[in-house]
Write a protein that binds this DNA or RNA. Structure first.
Lengths: 138, 138
DNA sequence: CGACCACTTGACGTTGACGTCAACGTAAAG
DNA sequence: CTTTACGTTGACGTCAACGTCAAGTGGTCG
């Protein structure tokens, strides 16, 4: 019933980052763990945000932009002006993500082309090798 | 017939980077322009490499790894050992790229989910607004 | 010839994203 | 009650990826 909580060590270990990294993200306003005395208590909300942050990092986005992205996810419905503004932001992010997708697809395609060439070269080597061995043993 | 060449200013402007950036990539061994006297002359090979480098950057790879990637593309067929090593490298890069692709897909999916919720909220607002105006004008 | 480019090499500065170390609190366990 | 483990706040260090001068070189145009 009660939603789970994490200490800094637990959540850092789960995501494979240092506790320094977690603190840095808090400094930059990317996560806002509760304070119980001086100690940090991480809630599911922080857990979700950290996952989003790290995915953003894998995609090469700077932390500033990552914050704008994760902030989009907990804006309140608010008024119409804010909503249309948010929709504009969403469009911008999507454009970027679609460019990333094109980059990934292109890179994968070229990589597979290269792999085919490698396999070809390897087959050619194996076909030539016997003749060389015959010549060398003369 | 003669393949095209570029000056540093031309190639930098074409790719939208500073000439300092191009020099930095040369220092790091990512590109190797010809020298005519002291001046750099960029050939199609450098042009291709620069495109690969910038795509790698958009995908968030560090320059060190990008160099390993672009270097893969002009290894000579060489001997069988090198080829199988290269095939292993290719597999590693592909695994990374496929993770990036999963990240992009997940991010896009969540973004579109968020967009749907926004549109819902907006429709709800527009449905409620007339009643509010009627009430306000009483 | 001189002025004006575009290009060059250092060398130091900057920024983002942390690493690292010192010094200190606190709560449970032996 | 001390040790041990985990937590905290500074503060400085570091590394990649450039930015930004300063000062010089080489070709071309008028």
């Amino acid at each position: 019933m009660a939603s789970p909580t994490w200490t800094i060590a637990q959540i850092a270990r789960e995501f494979g980052v240092s506790h320094r990294t977690v603190r840095y993200y808090e400094d930059k306003g990317l996560i806002t763990p509760e304070r119980r005395g001086t100690a940090r208590v991480f809630h599911p909300r922080d857990h979700v945000r950290l996952a989003l942050i790290l995915r953003g990092k894998r995609l090469g986005f700077p932390l500033d932009e990552i914050r704008r992205i994760v902030d989009m996810y907990d804006e309140q419905p608010g008024e119409a002006g804010q909503l249309t503004y948010l929709l504009g932001q969403i469009d911008d992010r999507r454009a970027e993500l679609e460019e990333r997708r094109r980059d990934v697809e292109a890179a994968l395609a070229e990589l597979e082309e290269l792999e085919r060439r490698c396999h070809d070269d390897l087959r050619r080597l194996r076909a030539d090798a016997p003749r060389e061995r015959a010549r060398d043993s003369r």
